[in-house]
Design a protein around this nucleic acid. Structure first.
Length: 183
DNA sequence: TGCACGATGAAC
DNA sequence: TTCATCGTGCAC
């Protein structure tokens, strides 16, 4: 299994988001290797994107987004759920890709559609915030062989407060995949 | 120091 | 449609 290199993440966020589809999210914890195939993502473009946490500027919470690419940005939402993001573009450009759903591949139990459920099923919480995605216990890999698929573009979920940014087609998912949270 | 509010999910 | 539940950001 080949880990994606740093320069994969050090590119345009929309491009990275779309290319993350079909990749494998791998997490080693408690001696268990969990693997999920990424089927749905959302792109958050940077400080100018009013739907992105980084639009509030550099704070203790958003520090990870302002950091170098290829790191995990994990936060707690609604006091209950965790969300996993992948930091993209050079340090200083606070962009990231939210992983919204995976398809179970190995050692993944429970539902995996939706960012909160994805983290629960993959045993991911905010202790993994700022964790390097080129580490041995948390990374994204290129599957050996993959069948082709079409990409559907939709508006992002839960960001109606973001004005015109809420209408941008920055949610991407694999067409027809049953594990997508909101087809 | 206080308070309003989420990049959600589950129950009703 | 309502609510759980708490860290964060920003107003006092």
């Amino acid at each position: 299994m080949t880990r994606l290199p740093r320069n994969f993440y050090d590119r345009d966020t929309v491009l990275v988001a779309q290319e993350l589809l079909g990749k494998w999210l791998v997490h080693h914890a408690g001696g268990v290797e969990r693997v999920g195939r990424i089927v749905e993502v959302e792109a958050y473009l940077g400080e100018h994107d009013l739907a992105a946490h980084s639009s509030k500027g550099l704070t203790k919470r958003t520090r990870t987004m302002f950091g170098p690419p290829g790191f995990a940005y994990v936060y707690l939402i609604y006091g209950i759920h965790h969300c996993l993001n992948v930091v993209t573009e050079p340090a200083g450009h606070a962009a990231a890709v939210l992983l919204r759903a995976v398809e179970p591949v190995k050692n993944v139990t429970g539902r995996t559609q939706g960012p909160g459920r994805l983290c629960r099923a993959m045993s991911i919480d905010r202790r993994l915030n700022a964790h390097d995605l080129l580490s041995d216990d948390l990374f994204i890999a290129q599957p050996e062989a993959g069948e082709g698929f079409a990409i559907v573009k939709r508006s992002r979920i839960g960001v109606d407060y973001a004005g015109h940014w809420a209408k941008r087609l920055l949610r991407f998912y694999i067409k027809g995949n049953p594990f997508v949270s909101r087809p």
